[in-house]
Design a protein around this nucleic acid. Structure first.
Lengths: 224, 224
DNA sequence: TCGATTTCGTTGTAAATACAACAGACCTTT
DNA sequence: AAAGGTCTGTTGTATTTACAACGAAATCGA
């Protein structure tokens, strides 16, 4: 378990913690390691969350598939990020989404009940952990609002531009990679893949942007 | 200020607090009262949040208007609910949305800095407050995910059905009122008002639902 | 290296949506 | 009661999108 300390040191959840803090938290919170092959489900819609979970290695998609097979991708999770954090409170109900490994992944899970209950003697960092958790949930909240902003655009082009320009701003570069292939991007923005592909090529021909696979470059300071 | 204690007693934020707890919190957190006429802005996009805010009376919409005048309604706030809670953490950046009073409203605001910093001696309830705050942000988080679920539907009909059936489930009744008129509902679901009105009437003619103004009834246990 | 699979772009058609314009119902105010 | 305004439903048209099908390119695995 100690092999994860260097990683955890860089996460927002353990921000401000020393190695010895993290070691005692891993123990106090009953951390467990799970490994998933690409394509395997970490959680399924309708389940109860089993605790706070953190991605150590690999990649995940938070997504949902309806009865007709339509896939909708809510979010992309990268190493060091937590997920399912909105379900660690009582009465949060069943999970609304599936969580799927997009590559071979390692997941750490922490005991549900011990996180929000105080154990001041054993874990001096516990207070800070709750605060960090709050920061993280707030950040997720703002991220969801940004996604709603993309989705509220009426046309595929506007959805694409708002997402891509936001991503450029977030990565502080006009050139950036996105964590989706074309089909996944379409499922993320809830549009048709072929229509989206068409629109991307039109924008490329108009000189608005260039791309190669999942690498995009926005031209002319188009940041709206 | 004490006139708000009965209201605050019923809010999730002060859940578990006694009257004396609330009174000392109001003092400790530097609560201030602001009043807004219908149509006035409580916050504007791009501002920095001034603190944690709670709606005491009236109604608010969290919304956004783009350069072309297209309105997008993110959320509806009712008395007892807090808003802007995702911005009380450091480095949260500027507000992404406007907050507008949909009727004459009374808003309580609490001091930003004192909420997450511990003041154990003065406020025995402070620890519980942070926990309640965390619960509330988590609940908001899940609400945003639900909204993303409506918005990810491809057709106006599916957007309407997912929203209305979800609202029926939430209000635990096949008959329920929504906090929007037609134009606002369209701006909430990001669809055209006339097309939406058309679709509503078609569904009524097909026997899927009935409505009168903002009162809807879903028939035949249609809850998908 | 070769074959199989996945990804991506392209096209055509049917369906759904946005937009504009308008009429009637309803509400408020005087 | 009348006038003015708002809200809602309706219709027609232009635009946009979804859907299906296919070929080429890239990727993967043996």
């Amino acid at each position: 378990m100690k092999e994860f300390i260097p990683l955890l040191n860089k996460t927002k959840l353990f921000s401000g913690a020393g190695d010895e803090d993290i070691a005692s938290m891993l123990d106090c919170l009953g951390a467990a390691v799970r490994r998933y092959k690409k394509g395997e489900y970490v959680f399924r819609q309708g389940e109860r969350a089993r605790g706070l979970t953190l991605l150590a290695e690999g990649g995940l998609h938070i997504q949902k598939e309806d009865y007709w097979g339509n896939l909708s991708i809510l979010n992309d999770i990268k190493p060091g990020e937590i997920f399912g954090e909105a379900y660690i409170v009582p009465d949060s109900g069943a999970l609304l989404n599936d969580v799927v490994a997009t590559e071979d992944s390692v997941v750490l899970s922490f005991d549900l009940d011990r996180i929000l209950s105080v154990c001041p003697s054993a874990c001096p960092f516990h207070t800070q952990l709750v605060k960090n958790l709050f920061y993280t949930v707030s950040a997720r909240n703002r991220g969801l609002v940004r996604k709603l902003d993309y989705m509220s655009r009426r046309t595929t082009r506007d959805k694409l531009l708002s997402y891509l320009s936001d991503e450029a701003k977030r990565q502080k570069s006009a050139s950036f990679a996105i964590p989706f292939n074309r089909q996944e991007l379409a499922d993320f923005l809830s549009v048709d893949r072929s229509a989206m592909s068409n629109e991307l090529c039109k924008m490329r021909d108009e000189g608005i942007l260039t791309f190669h696979k999942n690498e995009f470059t926005i031209r002319n300071g188009k940041t709206k």
